[in-house]
Every structure is written in structure tokens, then in C-alpha cells.
Nucleic acid binder design. Structure first.
Lengths: 159, 159
DNA sequence: CTACAACTTCAAGTTCACTTTAGGTCAAGG
DNA sequence: CCTTGACCTAAAGTGAACTTGAAGTTGTAG
């Protein structure tokens, strides 16, 4: 039984976020000492699971749906492999983007849009968004505390 | 010189988004016929570039900073490789997540949190968020029009 | 026992990336 | 010439994920 500040300390998350997560049903406090929440130590694992899901692009709601309040992924197996497939797509696009950036960092074409290599990389990345609208993906750089939020949503380009 | 509806049609983006992008300085219309915007056909390439950036997790502001209004990545090379490195991190995490999901889809441990394989995968994904707060990443599933937005931000778990 | 730092709740505020709405303009077809 | 539908602008609204603020409570160090 640890209190919110200990959870905050160990997880790196501000207490406000922990309260927010509890309100959303993502974590649970197992009791109170006075007004103060008490958490079971395993909340840290649950938070790690949440962080993992978030970092893979799941929304808090999706994570909530996928994992019981208890903490165990009680997930629909089909949903799981669908998500895995989506991640595969995402990984492909990320790789194309990464290669594109690495190339852009060394290639000195007047406009990268005219560089055939860049264009090919771009095409690669866009492929997969083909036909339907699809996935989205994001990376945020480190901020020294006081970071600002960021958002994303991608409509697939029909191109 | 194509009008906004043609751009919308070819890009798959709603006109409102195109106006919004123009307002943000991400694209430019090259003139007007009456009130109506006219775009150069190459705006489609620019939109593809924007889509690519978004799908790799850059915010519109970052994309704006990275690419001139003209359309050519006029980017600081150091920033570029930093971003590429971040993408590498992201890819690693995505892969771990994907493997975790694939495993979870077949493994029938009572709780995945108790499955050593899952825990190892989880550890992998969390590693890299180590030490500092770090990146963020996201994937969105296809929606049949009327899709709802989704957002992400990940504070690294200190674990 | 009292002060007070640390917790609590609830409401409102913030950012991002758009979308929606209200009210107006105008080029083209009949 | 007149209607009309596609376009325009400006402002407000939306959803996700938090954060901040105000005002109240309380475990604990002194």
C-alpha cells in the first residue's frame, strides 16, 4: 500500500495524471488513509502497461477496453492481431520516414521533392495509406518538464 | 491551376482542412478566381509530404518549421538526424508492442502480466523511455468517415 | 496540540488538429 | 438576368489527454 506521491515518484507521472487515470478507470486505488488514496504496488506495472499501450498509439479508451481494471489484458485476440498488423504498417512508414530523413540530412538536392531517392522513400511511406484512410503515428521529443501536449490524426492521402 | 475541390478530390482531404493548412502556412494558394482559391498542381506533392510527416509523428508546427512554404525541405540537418534517431527509438518500441500483441493473441496465461515473455517484451518497450521523458507515438484505425480524433502524449515512465 | 505540507474534489483551462456554423459572395448554367 | 450551389471568412465548437486553480481536509513533524 503506497500513496500517490510514491506512485508519482516511481512512475514519473504527476499525481494529477494518476487521479485522472483513476477517474477514467485505468487504474484503481485500493483504499484510503483519511482522504488520501492508497495504491497497491502493482499499480506500477499497470502504469507500465498503460505507458506501453500509449507509446504504441492506443488511446486511453482503447487501453481501458483492452485491459480489465484488474490489470490483466483480457483482450479479444482478433483485436490484438489487428492491432499488431496496424503496428506493422506503422513501423514500415516510420522506417521510410526515418530513411527519408537520414537521406535528406546528407543529400543536397535543390529541393528534396526533386530528388528521386527522396521521392521513392516518400512513396513508400504513403503506400499503405493507400485505398483507405488508415493509421496514425507520432513521436514527441523530450521536453524538460513543462512540456506541451501534442496531437495527431492522419487521414490517408488518396494520392 | 486547380481549385480547392480538385485538390480535395485528389488528396482526399476536406476543403476545410486545406483552408486550415493554408492558414497555418503549410500550403499556399497561388491566386484567386474571384474569391476562390487556385492551387498549383504541385500542392498535392506538398500535401503528400505533410501527410508523410504527420504519419511519422511530426506536429503541423514541426512540419511547417522543417519545410519552407515553397515546399522544399529546407531543414537543419542536425534536426533531421535527431528526428531519425527518435524514429528509430519509436520503431523499436512499436516492434516490441507488436510482438507483445502477437504473443498475447496466442498465449493463454491467466494474466499477461505474469507471463515472462510478455513481461520481457514490455520491458523492451519501456526501455528507451528510460531516464528522461521522451517520445510519443500513435496509430489510429480506419474510420468510415465521421471519424473521431485521437491524441497522444507519452511521458516516459521512470519505471 | 497546532501548524502546514500534502493531499482532496470539482470546475475550468490548455493544446492540437480540425470541423462546424452562420452569414456572405459570385461564376456559371438556364 | 436571375438563381443557385460551390466557394468564401471569422468565430465558435469538438475530443483527447491532461493541467491548473480554488477551496477545503488531514496525517505528521515539532
Amino acid at each position: 500500500m503506497i500513496d500517490i506521491s510514491a506512485v508519482a515518484k516511481h512512475s514519473g507521472l504527476p499525481a494529477s495524471t494518476l487521479r485522472f487515470y483513476e477517474e477514467k478507470g485505468l487504474i484503481r486505488s485500493v483504499g484510503r488513509r483519511g482522504l488520501r488514496r492508497l495504491f497497491a504496488p502493482n499499480v506500477l506495472e499497470r502504469l507500465a502497461l498503460i505507458a506501453l499501450g500509449r507509446s504504441a498509439g492506443f488511446s486511453l479508451d482503447e487501453i481501458g477496453r483492452m485491459t480489465g481494471t484488474d490489470g490483466s489484458p483480457k483482450i479479444d485476440r482478433e483485436l490484438l492481431s489487428d492491432k499488431a498488423d496496424e503496428l506493422d504498417q506503422s513501423i514500415r512508414k516510420l522506417r521510410a520516414m526515418r530513411d527519408g530523413l537520414r537521406h535528406a540530412a546528407v543529400c543536397s538536392a535543390p529541393s528534396h521533392l526533386e530528388c528521386p531517392k527522396f521521392r521513392r522513400l516518400m512513396g513508400l511511406a504513403v503506400a499503405g495509406a493507400k485505398d483507405g484512410n488508415t493509421k496514425r503515428k507520432a513521436v514527441r521529443a523530450k521536453r524538460i518538464r513543462k512540456e506541451m501536449p501534442a496531437r495527431n490524426k492522419t487521414r490517408g492521402l488518396k494520392l
